[in-house]
Design a protein around this nucleic acid. Structure first.
Length: 353
DNA sequence: AAACCGGGGTC
DNA sequence: GACCCAGGTTT
């Protein structure tokens, strides 16, 4: 534990009050809105999450409205934001609060943390902002600011690091205004003590910052290795029937994009030719069920869709078929389904006829 | 403890 | 290409 011999909290909060952004969730202490904003902002930049927050508040002004919504509607509004388990848990927890808790959110760190989708960070954020409970938040910004100012080189994604930084943040916390302190340290990390090339010369902590005085700013925080990205080969079968239908399947079970929709997928271990594709069992099952008239590759070079830990090397195949009867969906209905960005991008490029 | 879960911004 | 973002859950 580093020694603290300067007024960290006072300096930080003074900076915050002079430099904070006016954000919609800073205008309220309504736990529903604070909770909603915190879920949206998990692993998500303010600029990216802001329009989603506005849409959700407008569509679901309170927890009852959100609780009533079908999961598919929530996923549709969430489309493009990523980490879709957040949306599924959001709806689940809204339902729980509305039906089991009479619409009243838990008001302590411990009870908030029991909610699905609410972990240490989010429980601390809601408890401190809405209920003035002295619970320190530790997000990516906090790791960065504290590791630099106090020269802590413990890896932030190790068990020891998680404990050490939580304790340090809790020690520094201004217990008289925990919500302000928490937002201040995050704002400072997001806007001043940024990951790359921070303006250390003019920093309020330049005299006290261990990283700055020892010229190790670019080496902190320390983070343990990254895992290797896996390559997967996706072949999407875009059915076009003579009765102007296509088919979307819902992704069920484990894995990415759970409960979202996509075209029938043939996943292979390599990039495949048309001949290879036709020999794939998944494709053969499809062709046994549906009479196929023609097949043509849509994109000549594969589209590489990059996720944090997977590269999806994707080819779209346009397949004309006879009637799909009840097993297809009308082309005009397609925009109603929540789809991953990979599919949404294709739909924007491709014009159905 | 390690793996898994998205999409976008930045350098 | 590497790193990161107002993290959490599952294995």
């Amino acid at each position: 534990m580093p020694e603290i011999n300067f007024p960290f909290s006072n300096k930080l909060i003074t900076w915050y009050l002079q430099n904070k952004r006016e954000l919609p969730w800073r205008q309220t202490k309504d736990p529903y809105r604070i909770w909603l904003s915190e879920i949206i902002l998990q692993q998500t930049r303010v600029a990216q999450g802001l329009p989603y927050y506005e849409t959700f508040v407008a569509t679901y002004p309170n927890v009852y409205e959100l609780a009533k919504a079908p999961e598919e509607d929530v996923l549709k509004l969430w489309q493009g934001l990523g980490y879709y388990s957040r949306a599924r848990n959001l709806r689940f927890t809204a339902n729980f609060v509305a039906n089991e808790l009479n619409g009243v959110f838990p008001n302590t760190y411990e009870s908030l943390k029991k909610l699905k989708g609410v972990g240490d960070y989010t429980a601390s954020a809601i408890a401190s902002i809405c209920y003035q409970e002295p619970a320190a938040v530790v997000d990516g910004n906090v790791y960065r600011v504290l590791s630099r100012v106090f020269g802590v080189a413990t890896p932030i994604n190790s068990t020891a690091g998680i404990k050490e930084f939580k304790l340090l943040a809790q020690t520094l916390l201004d217990e008289k205004q925990p919500g302000v302190f928490n937002q201040a340290i995050m704002e400072f990390g997001a806007r001043y003590c940024v990951p790359q090339n921070p303006a250390c010369e003019g920093c309020i902590f330049s005299e006290n910052c261990m990283a700055f005085t020892s010229r190790t700013v670019s080496e902190l925080p320390v983070k343990l290795k990254k895992l290797k990205v896996k390559k997967r080969y996706f072949n999407y079968i875009v059915l076009l029937s003579i009765d102007h239908k296509t088919r979307l399947n819902q992704r069920l079970g484990k894995g990415i994009w759970q409960n979202l929709y996509e075209f029938p997928l043939v996943e292979t271990t390599n990039e495949v030719s048309e001949g290879d594709l036709k020999r794939e069992p998944a494709y053969r099952n499809l062709s046994e069920e549906i009479k196929i008239n023609s097949i043509v590759k849509y994109n000549d070079t594969p589209i590489v869709h990059k996720l944090s830990h997977q590269h999806l090397i994707t080819t779209f195949w346009i397949v004309e078929t006879e009637t799909l009867h009840g097993t297809g969906i009308a082309i005009s209905e397609i925009e109603k389904f929540p789809v991953p960005v990979l599919i949404a991008n294709f739909l924007n490029m491709f014009t159905f006829q």
